[in-house]
Write a protein that binds this DNA or RNA. Sequence first.
DNA 1: ACTATTTCATACTACTTAGTCTGATATTAT
DNA 2: ATAATATCAGACTAAGTAGTATGAAATAGT
Lengths: 195, 195
Amino acid sequence: MPRHKEFSESELLQTAVLLFWEKGYCDSSVDELIKRSGVAKYGIYATFGSKRALFKAVLKQYAEDRKKDIQKPLRQQQAALPEIVAFFSSLPAKLTKKDFQYGCLMANTGMELGLRDDEFSRMVKTFFEQTTEVMKACLDRAVELKQIDPQVDTEILARFLVNEFRTLLMLSSSGHKKRELKLQMETALTLLPLT
Amino acid sequence: MPRHKEFSESELLQTAVLLFWEKGYCDSSVDELIKRSGVAKYGIYATFGSKRALFKAVLKQYAEDRKKDIQKPLRQQQAALPEIVAFFSSLPAKLTKKDFQYGCLMANTGMELGLRDDEFSRMVKTFFEQTTEVMKACLDRAVELKQIDPQVDTEILARFLVNEFRTLLMLSSSGHKKRELKLQMETALTLLPLT
DNA sequence: ACTATTTCATACTACTTAGTCTGATATTAT
DNA sequence: ATAATATCAGACTAAGTAGTATGAAATAGT
C-alpha cells in the first residue's frame, strides 16, 4: 500500500560517508547532509534514526569499503612479504590522491572520539585489530615461505606494521605531503627485519 | 583611571588550554569556558578577540608547556642517545597519566584541522619540526660520542623518531592503554639502529 | 474508485553557537 | 570629590544544532 522512497539508501549512506570523512563527527550536521544528498530530513531520520546511528552505519560502510580497496593487497589468499611491501609502497601515492584527501575516517575518528566515546572508540579499535590479524597472517605465510627470519614474533611485528600504517594515515590527515609520507614509509621498510 | 581586571589572564589561558585539549577546537565553546573559568564573556573577548585567536594563544601556550615538561630530556644541553632512550621509555607512563588524559593537543589538532585550516596546520607542523631539530641535535651528539653508527643519516632518523613519538601520541588519543604504548615503544627501540 | 499507509516538504521546538551591546559599577588621576 | 575610563553581568542577535510534528501527495491492495 505504501508510497515508496524517492532516494537510494546506499547513495544517501555514501554521501554521509563523504561528509563525516571530510568534517568528522562533531562538525558534520544533518542539515548539511540534507543539502548534499537532496534527501529530506524525514527520509534521513526514518532510515537511520539519529545522527549517532547514522554515523555508526557510516563507520561500518567505510570499514567495508577500505577492506575492499586499500587493504586488498593484504587480504588476498596468498599474500605474504611481497604483498606487504607492495601495500606500504603504494600508500604514499594512494593517501594523497583525491579519494583520500580527508585522510582516513577510522584514524580520524579514533583521534576525535577515542577518549570520549566508548562505542565509536571500540569500532575503530576493532577495525585496526582486524587489520593486525590480516597482517599477521601475511607474516606467518612469509615465515613459511622463508621470506623472513623465522625467529620474528609475527604478532608483535604485525602490530608494529599496522601502527606504521596508522602513522602514514595520521601524517596524511595532518596535512603532510606525499614526499614526507614516502620518506617515512621507506625508512620504516629499511629498518624492519623483513629480509 | 580604569577599573582593573578581576581575573588572571594566565589562569584564563590555562583553563582554555584544558578545555580545547579535552574537546578539540570545534567542540569547545566560549560558553563552556565562561562556566569553567568564571570569567565573563566581555573579559574573554576583550583579552583574546575571538574564539580563533583564543585557540591560537592556547596552541602557543601548550607548545611552550610541552617543551618544558615532556620534551625536557631532549632539550638539555648535553642530551644524546641515553636521553633519547629515556625520553621514549618514559612516554607510555607519562601519556597515560591524568595530565595527559586527553592525548596531545598538538597531535589532536593536526588530525582535526590539518587538512582544513592552513594556519593551525602550520603551527602544528612547526611544533613537530622544532622537535625534529632537537632530536637531530641529540643524534648528532650521539654520533660525536660514538654512541651510534656514524653512517646513520641523523636527519632521516630524527624524522622517523619524531614520527614514532607522534605514533605514541596518536595511540594514546585513540584510547589505547599503557600496555599497548609500551609494546609499540619497545618494538621501535629494538628495531632502530641506535647502538 | 476507495482506503490505508507511507513518504514528502516544510514548519516547528528547544537548545547551543560566536559575537555584540548596554547600563551599572569600580577605579584612579586630577 | 569629581570626571574619565575600563570592567562587569547579563541581555541580545542571528545563525546553526538535533530532532519532531504536520498536512499534502503518492502508492497499492481491495
